[in-house]
Structure formats: structure tokens, C-alpha cells
Design a protein around this nucleic acid. Structure first.
Length: 255
DNA sequence: ATGGTCGGGGACCGA
């Protein structure tokens, strides 16, 4: 079972990249963020032709999440219970007995911004939701664009980013509380090359200089983590023409 | 700086 996450920064623009990558990587499940289109515009037929079923939760212009899978998905959740939010940032479903939670965590903009407050509130709602999900689903995988670099190892220039959004102590503490519910950041279960990132700024030749961050994560429940056989980042699509600023992150599970 | 969206210029958003 190969599971992947990719923030595509507009599926309208990136559909051919996604189809090409599905053909190369052949994941069983691919979750997407920032599809930036209304649900009705989601290109379901293109994924059907590629041999996948899909489900999307979109909105105009911003955000939007989708799940593409070889097997049918069921039991959808597209909102945190009791947390009013017009922004489409979560899509939970069950596939082949695995509970999959696809996330597009708010960016936060800056530590002084109201969007940062929204980010922290959103992370609290996520923690509440996952606290309940993990009780009912032994095999749970939570993956997506977390917009948090968990550790200084995940930042190309930690000193520069120390008190900045994506790296601030409050965000990292919120992530730790979520992981402490009973998850493993599976990428760190395995030996990895130094300076491995999942996002690079379009500006100032970020990718060429490898000035990146690891902010796209795959958290497996402790039970599921025991059958995780590999986790890695595929830099290739970031080198394609007119790429997303993120690249796919993968994990492989036995059975 | 760069890229996407909406809209028809330039503001907003991203990380």
C-alpha cells in the first residue's frame, strides 16, 4: 500500500503533472491540497480514465482538498464537528480499512496576523477531531500540507526562520500535541538524506539552492506505523516545467 | 523577487 500527499497549487494548472506522476509512481492513494477549484470543476473523469476513483471538497479560488484512490473511499468528513469554517481544508475517508485524513493546514501569514490565530484555533480543532478518530480507528493516517516544519532539521536556514510562521514554538507545540495523541512522523522512522525538503520558494531560485522546508507530513497511528516499510520525498516533479512549489511525499505500508 | 486567481488592473494569498 503506497500512500502519497501533494500540494499541487491549482489542479487546473497541474492536472497533467498529477496524471503523469500517478503513471510513474503508481500510488494506491494520493491526497491533494490547494486544488483551487469548486467541487463541480474537479476533473473526476480524468482520474477515472487513469484507473482511480476520487472525491473532492473544493471552493472558488482558494484551498480545496481531494483524495484519489485505487479502491473506493467511504465515510467522508469534510468539517471538524463544532468548528464553523467555510474554508475547505479537510477530507477524511476510509479506504481498504485505513482511515485517511487529508489536511491543508492554514498558513498563518505572520505571528501578528489574525490568520495565525485562525491557524492555532484550527490546529486545536484538528487535535479534538483526531483525538476522537484515533479511538475508533486503529489504522489511521493523517497526511497533507501541515504548514509546520517540525524540527530545525526540516528548515534550510533555522536561524532565519526561528521566530517565523511555519517554525514558531506555538505551532511546533500544537503539532507535538497532535503527534502525542499516538502518531509517528513516518519520514523520520527511516534514514534520510540531510536537507530533504518538500517545499521550495518559487522566488530567489529556492529549488536550485535547495532553500526549502519539510512541511508536508505523513503521520501514521502507532499501530499503522509498525507496518510502515518506507517513507521518502520525490523531488522529481518539482523540477518539471511550471511546477507546484511542493513535491510529493510518500509512505509505503505492508499489506 | 514568483506563481495562481479573478478579472481586465492590481490586490490578495501563498510559505
Amino acid at each position: 500500500m503506497k500512500i502519497a500527499t501533494w500540494n499541487v497549487n491549482s489542479l487546473n494548472v497541474r492536472l497533467q503533472h498529477v496524471l503523469e506522476w500517478l503513471d510513474i509512481a503508481n500510488p494506491d492513494i494520493l491526497v491533494l491540497q490547494e486544488i483551487k477549484q469548486v467541487t463541480e470543476a474537479f476533473p473526476e473523469d480524468a482520474f477515472t480514465e487513469a484507473g482511480y476513483v476520487s472525491i473532492a471538497s473544493g471552493q472558488k479560488t482558494y484551498n480545496g482538498v481531494a483524495v484519489i484512490s485505487r479502491s473506493q473511499s467511504t465515510d467522508y468528513v469534510m468539517d471538524f464537528p463544532g468548528f464553523e469554517d467555510p474554508q475547505r481544508r479537510i477530507l477524511a475517508c476510509t479506504i481498504d480499512g485505513i482511515r485517511v485524513v487529508n489536511l491543508y493546514v492554514p498558513n498563518g501569514q505572520s505571528l501578528e496576523s489574525e490568520k495565525y490565530e485562525y491557524k492555532l484555533n484550527w490546529l486545536q480543532a484538528l487535535q479534538n477531531f483526531l483525538g476522537s478518530e484515533i479511538k475508533t480507528h486503529k489504522n489511521l493516517v493523517v497526511l497533507g500540507d501541515f504548514n509546520i516544519a517540525p524540527d530545525d532539521r526540516d528548515v534550510y536556514d533555522p536561524e532565519k526562520w526561528r521566530e517565523d510562521v511555519l517554525c514558531s514554538p506555538a505551532e511546533r507545540a500544537a503539532l507535538k500535541k497532535i503527534i502525542d495523541l499516538g502518531f509517528v512522523d513516518v519520514f523520520r522512522q527511516f534514514e534520510q538524506p540531510e536537507k530533504t525538503y518538500s517545499w521550495w520558494d518559487y522566488r530567489a531560485a529556492g529549488f536550485r539552492r535547495n532553500a526549502g522546508l519539510r512541511i508536508d507530513l505523513i503521520l501514521a497511528s502507532n499501530n499503522l506505523a509498525t507496518i510502515c516499510e518506507a517513507s521518502y520525498i520525490d523531488r522529481e516533479p518539482r523540477s518539471w516545467e511550471r511546477p507546484s512549489d511542493h513535491t510529493p511525499v510518500l509512505a509505503e505500508f505492508s499489506a
